[in-house]
């Protein structure tokens, strides 16, 4: 099959970018979106042009490196699928695909489809952990955790930090990402002692990074490749409001 790509090309963080059109002639329906870009890039290199820069690593939907907009949808049209796992059989022959980087003030574009997501690390750094010095832990079975709680914590912990939630949110809010970590740790008994402090610190950092606020629109949930639920945002709000309340 054949596809037409319109790709955002931008040489560097300060450079101006624009959409550039590429014809992808020989597309195998079993290819992934990234393999298609590989093929396009090989041709560009042989023509002496710079290949399209895009982020990727594991190519199996778990590292969270990859991600860009395809026709206005973060990670493309297939639900619960990252671009590295999106195969071309989901597109029509001759279809035109617009590939654009995540857009947010907190995620500046570095080059083409590559953005800087360090803001996420700083949000985690601000409190997305349980303070436990190495070697001081009690036996693993000394804390019993109901299976249901463990499962729900796992649901939230599945976030891969890809940034699609921010990209899709009309407000460029990182509420789903931040909420996912707060929910993961807050659902476990080990996470209780720091629950309030964690919410305060993570939310403060998330605000400092310049993400927008959440107005419960729900685009994030729809594009999240790991199916993180809006519930985690409510949990973040609750923990935060409680924390403020208790620290009068």
């Amino acid at each position: 099959m054949r596809l037409i790509l319109q790709v955002w090309r931008q040489k560097g963080p300060q450079a101006r970018g624009r959409m550039v059109r590429y014809d992808a002639g020989d597309v195998n329906p079993d290819m992934s979106m990234l393999e298609l870009l590989d093929v396009v890039n090989e041709e560009l290199i042989l023509k002496g042009e710079e290949p399209i820069a895009f982020e990727h690593d594991c190519r199996e939907g778990i590292c969270g490196s990859c991600g860009f907009m395809i026709n206005g949808i973060a990670h493309g049209p297939l639900p619960a699928t990252t671009v590295c796992q999106l195969s071309m059989r989901h597109f029509r022959d001759g279809q035109e695909l617009y590939l654009e980087p995540w857009r947010a003030k907190a995620f500046p574009v570095l080059k083409d489809l590559v953005v800087d997501r360090r803001a996420f690390d700083r949000v985690i750094s601000a409190g997305g952990y349980i303070t436990v010095p190495t070697g001081s832990a009690p036996d693993g079975n000394s804390i019993l955790i109901p299976k249901e709680d463990a499962d729900r914590a796992m649901d939230a912990a599945a976030c891969i930090g890809c940034g699609a939630c921010v990209a899709a949110c009309p407000n460029a809010s990182a509420a789903l990402f931040t909420g996912a970590k707060i929910a993961h740790l807050g659902l476990l008994p080990q996470g209780q002692p720091e629950r309030h402090e964690r919410a305060l610190r993570m939310v403060r950092q998330y605000n400092r990074e310049g993400f927008g606020s959440c107005t419960n629109i729900g685009e994030c949930e729809a594009v999240c490749p790991k199916g993180i639920k809006l519930e985690v945002i409510a949990r973040m709000n609750r923990d935060y409001i409680q924390a403020i309340w208790q620290r009068r």
Binding site: I130, G135, G140, A153
Partner: peptide, 22 residues
Amino acid sequence: LNIIDQCVAQGVPFAREYGGTL
């Protein structure tokens, strides 16, 4: 042995039995 303890304490959501054990 220590690894599992350490990771549980960090909040790694290992699979659990219905009784709450690992």
